[in-house]
Design a protein around this nucleic acid. Structure first.
Lengths: 158, 158
DNA sequence: CTAGTTTATTTGAAGCGGCAACTACTTCCG
DNA sequence: CGGAAGTAGTTGCCGCTTCAAATAAACTAG
């Protein structure tokens, strides 16, 4: 199975470990949010993104990009949030194709209620297990993977 | 939003970067496998795990653990692989509750065919973006997160 | 030996996300 | 102006995952 270009031993070890994180961490995070707050990780992220705007309002496309989701996924997420009363949607005044998603007071309250539990989970599963130096490494590596610097080549490409 | 215990600035930065990886990497990986080989990441992993046994055979529970999936998920994955002719299932001779999943020759062939493309994608999205030192860090951090050492506390707990 | 418990796996129902198709609006340009 | 092309967002269909319940076999204790 060592085709054209396989991985080195170090890379293989790192890959297996990373694969474990990729499978298990999101599940554990989602599980806590679902159980304690009836929210999805993705939905939570969307609430966070909206809450960071002082007008609590953002265009769908922009919201999709900042929460790392596809437009169609975002559309459904916001539809669910709206159904739950946590957000509203209205047409943008300037561009009638665009939709502005807005966080409601109930949505903000929901976020405030859900945050401590979620943060505790993140701390428990991630930061409690890492030294400050490792946190720094993690930051560096994660940024390298999501491009962060080089704006034109995200792993969305292929 | 800085409740009981929020995250430090460093931690918050690392967390946002990690969240990006958690959302985008699996999607990009799945997408390639789906497109080029009509396989799921999870299904691919299962094939890999089976292929690493010299008898190409493993118990469901063990297989679930080594591929980081729940039992119910694994059950469906193997059912699909079986339907596609890549695996077979039979009762274990010693314990009739247990099921042994076995990789077929067609499954092995499928894996051999799919591997190069997948590996290339992993290399492109991960290792080409990291220095050897960063690969080492990644390995260390990922292991810390998945416990790897400490057998009794995976993030599956809560 | 038998009832109760634990372990191994599967499955029905329900929810979520992807792809591709579709609507609707805007912009470009002759 | 008027049509082609591009952009924003939604939705139908389908496949995958989860949760909880079901089935079945293997221990365990009396």
């Amino acid at each position: 199975m060592d085709e054209p270009e396989w991985l080195s031993a170090d890379e293989l070890a790192a890959w297996k470990a990373l694969a474990g994180v990729l499978f298990l961490l999101p599940a554990a995070l989602d599980s806590q949010l679902q159980r304690d707050s009836d929210l999805t990780m993705a939905g939570y992220m969307v609430l966070v993104m909206l809450s960071e705007r002082e007008d609590h309002c953002m265009r769908m496309t922009e919201l999709a990009a900042s929460s790392n989701t596809s437009q169609s996924r975002l559309s459904r997420i916001v539809a669910r949030l709206e159904a739950a009363g946590y957000a509203t949607r209205r047409m943008a005044p300037d561009d009638r194709r665009a939709v502005l998603a807005t966080l409601t007071d109930a949505g903000m309250a929901k976020l405030v209620a859900a945050a401590p539990g979620h943060v505790a989970q993140v701390r428990r599963l991630v930061f409690d297990r890492l030294t400050p130096a490792q946190v720094e490494s993690l930051n560096e590596v994660a940024r390298a993977l999501t491009h962060a610097d080089d704006p034109a080549n995200c792993e969305l490409s292929t």
